[in-house]
Each structure stands twice: as structure tokens, then as C-alpha cells.
Amino acid sequence: MKLSLGPIQYFWAAEVVRDFYRQVATWPVEIVYLGETVCSRRRELKLDDWLEIAGSLSDAGKQVVLSSQTLIESEGDLRHLRRLCEQASRDGGNWLIEANDQSALQLLSEQAAPFVTGPSVNIYNARTLALLHKLGLQRWCLPVELSRHTLEAMQASIAEQVLALETEVFAYGHLPLAWSARCFTARYHDLPKDRCEFVCQRYPEGLMMSSQESQELFVLNGIQTLSGACYDLADQLSLMQQLQVAVVRLSPQICGMDEVVARFDRLRRGQQAPSDQIRLRDLQTCNGYWFGKPGMDRLATDG
């Protein structure tokens, strides 16, 4: 089973991003997703900068995937997307692209380039999977709200149809749950989105939104809303192995990500029992979606 590092959801300064990936080069992850997937206004790193990071990680032996923006709204967004998708061609360097919406699916399938899908592409059943596979899908990520039962049925159908497809599961991190035309971070600062002053860069872990009873509900991250609790399926890796899950995705956080990666690496090698998990940080965790329950729930597992 391979480990992947999802795209950075938050807006980190360019130097922080570069430092982060210098470390990633030495971590035991096989796949790294790169790029800005949330907001078109976050352009500290241009495509060429990302390609430079991609080159270094590729040299370090990682499979690099370039991730597309999730909510495409304008002609400007489409221009950036086209440039990104051109990287999938031979002339563009043959990079694998992660399609995060149907605009990307269109551009990639039109140029007959192979692609992978992120969790925001709604693949809920076998017929959808088979159709996208025909168009060039090589690996898909289970949408976050789907359960292990649905995963199991999907895996059975992949086996039955003998599709050459890898399955990836989002297994650690705050879950990306929604995208909007509105920027909630700018709204909090009472700034118009067009002149947001890039305030989201002040929140490298997003802004916590709680109920009036101080229950942490969601993390506001620009136009994106993430789960308040951190999804953690570390104790489910052996089941994932049984279900032929090829890749386990970990979503980057600014602090302690090296420890998270190390822990998943030990678990997949069977060098650590799920029960001796070190609580790295005082993080509220959840796993409800995996069990077909409300996503925020934390179900006790026997490890």
C-alpha cells in the first residue's frame, strides 16, 4: 500500500511551501499532489514554481501529480486550467494531472491524456467509474462522504470488470467538504473577495468555526469549508489492505506532518499496533463517514 500526500489546502507563504516540500522529499510517501486547488487568487507560486518543486520531488523518487482547481468559475480560471492540463502532454513534460472538476475531465479526455481524480469528483457507483476509466482514469479517490461498504462494492466491481484502476482513500486530515463563490475568511474580516488582502495567509490551519456552545464544527479556509475534526483512519489500514486499496491519502497540516507520515508508514508495515497511537497533538478526530455515520462522529474501534 502506497502513501500519498494530498495538495496543500491552505494558503501558505511561498517559502513555507518550498521548505515543506524539501522535507517531503525525504519522507516515506510515494505520491505527492501539488498545486493550488482552492482559490484562484492564491498565486504566490506560479505554475513554473510548482513545476520546479515537481522536478525536485520527482528526482527524489516520488510520483508527482499536478492537482487542478476544484471550483472553476471564470475564463481566467479556465486559462490556468488549460495550461495545467497541457503539462500532461509529451511536450508539457508528461505530468500526471489530478482532475478536481469536470472542466478538467473535459480537457484531459479531449487530449486523451491519462488522469486521476480527487475526492471532489463525484464517483459514487461502478458505471461512473467504468465510463471515466474508458476516458483515461487511472486512479480515483473515494469521495469523502462514502463509507467502507460502498468502497467494498466498488472494489468488487473493479475486480469483476477487470479494470486497471487504482483506488485511493482520504485517510487523514481535515476533510474538504464544500466550495463557494463567497470567501468566508474575507467575510470574517469584512473585506470584499476581490480585495481580500489575502487574509487567509494569516491562518495556515484555517479559521475554526464553532457553535455557540463552543463545539468545533467547520474550518473556514477561504472559499472552502473543511471538517472541524481531523479525519483519521489510521486504525483501518489493515481493512483497507484487505480491500485492495492501493493508496492512502494524507492531507498536509502545517505542524507535525512528518510524525503523521511516520506513523502511517509504521502502521502499513505492521511495525506499530493501531492501539499504540501517539496522540501527537490535541486534535479532535472523527471517522464517522467510514462507518456510514455522520462524518463528525468518532466511533470506538477495537483496533
Binding site: P143, L177, K293, G295
Partner: peptide
């Protein structure tokens, strides 16, 4: 692509 409702309910 909004999964907020299933996060709080099922």
C-alpha cells in the same frame, strides 16, 4: 459538491 449536511447528520 457540498458534503456539510452528511458531516453533521447521516
Amino acid at each position: 459538491r457540498c458534503y456539510l449536511s452528511s458531516y453533521l447528520t447521516d
